[in-house]
Amino acid sequence: MIRLIAADMDGTLLHSNGYITKKTADIIHKIQKSGFEFIVNTGRDYYSAKKELDAAKITCDMICNSGACTYDCFGNPFHIVSIPKSTAKKILEIFQRHHAFADISTDYGKTSIENPEALLK
């Protein structure tokens, strides 16, 4: 018996223009009203995913950051997997040494290593 339907955002829920269409939102609402759980599973950070879901008036639990963070439909975290600060500093040093660019997800959203001192605060 199916109890849960999970969907990715980019390339699945989101239209090619980057938003959830009314038709897709209506289907999700119908799924939820039928008694099925609906959950979003995305590589996006919470705030990016929530912005798109709010615009479509969709409320659901979310798995974000490629599985590193899970949230209930109210935005309360179930589980957050984080990297210790000392490890994050070592990673930043490696990226800086190789003049590499990386996006980093934090509790406050996505950032880059362009300003590592601000990031570590």
Rank of each mutant, 00 (worst) to 15 (best):
C64S: 05
I39R: 15
A56W: 11
L119P: 06
E117N: 11
V40D: 04
K121Q: 13
K110H: 01
I91K: 13
Q32E: 08
A56V: 03
F95A: 08
L4H: 04
S86L: 03
L4F: 10
Y46M: 04
D107C: 01
A55W: 02
G43C: 02
T42N: 02
I83Y: 13
I20S: 08
K121V: 11
I58C: 11
T70N: 00
A102N: 03
A49I: 03
A25H: 08
K50R: 14
I2T: 07
K121W: 00
G43I: 06
I58Y: 06
T70P: 00
V81Y: 14
T70S: 15
A88K: 13
P116R: 06
I63Y: 09
K33H: 12
L14V: 07
L120D: 05
S16D: 13
G11I: 09
K23R: 15
E52G: 00
L13K: 11
T70A: 14
C60R: 03
P77E: 05
F38R: 05
L92Y: 07
G67H: 12
D54S: 04
G11P: 07
K22G: 00
S105H: 06
D103E: 10
G109E: 01
I104R: 04
I58T: 04
G109P: 04
A56K: 08
R97Q: 14
C69Y: 05
E117V: 13
S82C: 04
K89P: 00
A25Y: 12
H98V: 04
S66C: 11
T12C: 15
D26Y: 09
G75N: 06
K23C: 05
H98R: 10
H29S: 09
I80P: 02
K121C: 09
A49W: 02
H99I: 07
A7V: 04
N41D: 13
L13F: 10
S112K: 02
H99K: 15
V40G: 09
Y47R: 04
F78T: 03
Y47V: 00
R3N: 08
I58V: 09
I5W: 05
G109F: 03
I28F: 04
G109A: 00
T21F: 13
I58L: 09
E93A: 15
K33G: 02
K33M: 07
F101R: 06
G43A: 03
D8Y: 12
I27H: 07
F74Q: 08
P84D: 15
K90L: 14
F78N: 10
I113S: 07
Q32R: 13
P116A: 03
S86T: 13
S112R: 00
I27C: 07
P77I: 11
R3F: 08
Q32M: 14
A56S: 04
N17Q: 15
G43K: 09
T87C: 06
Y19P: 00
C73G: 01
G67T: 12
S34V: 01
I113C: 15
S66R: 01
R97T: 11
A49K: 03
K85G: 00
G43F: 03
Q32Y: 05
F95Q: 01
S34N: 14
